[in-house]
Amino acid sequence: MAFAIVEVCINCWACELVCPNNAIVEAKPHFFIAAEQCTECAGDYAEPQCVGICPIEGAIVDEYQKPLNPLGSLIPIPLKQRRETLTVP
């Protein structure tokens, strides 16, 4: 039972500061969750802290690689404009 950070992470440090288990470490190319230390905050908080503060959709995934903040869950940008963002350099 552990979460993971994937490549869309912007290295903003927010998760590192709120993790109750010090499971998150600065790494290259992006932050990293030490699986053996991650408890998904069970027993500490009602919701996982890194997932709660992460500003980037899709940056933190569960053990099945499922995004915990899926697309559209943090910033309500309509799909049409989102597609346009993909073309923005």
Binding site: N11, C12, W13, A14, E16, L17, I53, I75
Partner: peptide
């Protein structure tokens, strides 16, 4: 670097 809110 970290922020505790999101602004549009």
């Amino acid at each position: 670097p970290a922020c505790n809110i999101q602004c549009h």
